[in-house]
Design a binder for these strands. Structure first.
Lengths: 207, 207
DNA sequence: ACGCGGACTAAGCGCTCGCTCACCTTGGGC
DNA sequence: GCCCAAGGTGAGCGAGCGCTTAGTCCGCGT
């Protein structure tokens, strides 16, 4: 494994870009803690403890606890945009690209549930400026999915009543996987990805 | 209006069953605060202040801050089960009952977004016992929706690959409305309900 | 007229929070 | 051999937390 690492939960966590090593360990510890308890219920002592450091060490690498959440959120959303963009701009029919986008997006939410939970559900704990930056990335996610759906309608492959509403519903469905998915449950991330790709193709009335 | 009241946000809040009056005001204040900031970021002083009382008054009607969340969660989930059960046991074809269940469930999540947010997303802040009680109610929600889908398959009206997965996806889609719905957005709760009923009928392959 | 009990408040307790500061350790350049 | 910057620690500050307690207020039965 070159750029990805295994967390205690067995998830793939591509935090290779975060340096130095101590900063990365703190960030990964924060992801785990935020996902388990939520941002406000997590203490800086808990984060530092998980990373095997003293509480004060956190402030050498990050200015505040909120900066940790901000960094996690930005990196995670950039990854989300990347996944959707890759699928949207790939080859194949709109139906194939939509299925690809949904299955890979869902796999990311299920497989990296810990990270995805923080990224998707702790947004409101950010301050106004950081929040605005993240919301811009979310609009990009929306635009990529909407683009595929519009392509499918344009070539007559899809039958959609409300493009905006359907786009929102597709993204909502995928994102909520991070809330309910359980590693010890009956499905693997691949299986949920395949199931959801089928459901979404039905939603857009693919012929 | 006999059993429902209007909050500041213009939502219908059926807290008529909560007495005495001061206890209900505190509970409604807690719903607002929890929805805005989350359970852990809300202080008992904030709740009491919104209800126009001193911080100590809270403890005359509730033993702890967590009891407030528990009561809100139980009442909300009972309402959710009630909505789904009414639709599931109504008359009409499985497709009509499923559309009815989804549209009314979505209307509740959109129209009572403040309440639904707390009910659906602050569950993890409950202690183990209270959480287990609420999870039982959630399983009832799942059973009602699954029942309709199984009926539709039995009479040959639906075409579903994975009953359990599709049930989960339908509920997930509805629940996530509470996360993104905005009162000042482009849709009314009725419109989202109608859109989602259509999408769900497509998901189950209704003929 | 009066006592009583439930509703409510002012004050504050013990604790933990995010964060800081003075100090310590270590390794590479000269 | 010595120095110094970078990275780390232990102790603890001020603030705000959930919750308690002692006492006040007020409507009501008698």
């Amino acid at each position: 494994m070159s750029t990805a690492e295994e967390t205690a939960g067995g998830e793939v966590a591509p935090w290779g870009e975060v340096t130095p090593d101590a900063a990365r360990r703190l960030l990964m510890a924060a992801v785990e803690a935020f996902a388990e308890r939520g941002y406000h219920a997590t203490t800086t002592r808990d984060i530092a403890g998980r990373a095997g450091m003293s509480p004060a060490a956190l402030y050498i690498h990050y200015k505040t606890k909120e900066e940790l959440l901000h960094r996690i959120s930005r990196i995670g959303h950039e990854k989300a945009v990347d996944i959707l963009r890759t699928a949207a701009r790939g080859e194949g029919t709109p139906a194939e690209r939509l299925a690809d986008a949904v299955s890979s997006f869902v796999r990311w939410h299920a497989g990296g549930r810990t990270t995805a939970r923080v990224v998707q559900y702790e947004l409101d704990s950010l301050g106004p400026d950081a929040r605005a930056e993240i919301l811009a990335l979310r609009r990009q996610c929306d635009a990529e999915v909407r683009g595929i759906i519009e392509d499918g309608i344009a070539v007559g492959d899809f039958d959609v009543l409300d493009v905006k509403g359907t786009t929102l519903a597709v993204l909502s469905l995928c994102i909520d996987v991070a809330r309910w998915f359980n590693v010890h449950g009956p499905w693997t991330p691949d299986e949920v990805g395949a199931l959801y790709a089928d459901l979404v193709l039905r939603m857009v009335g693919v012929k």
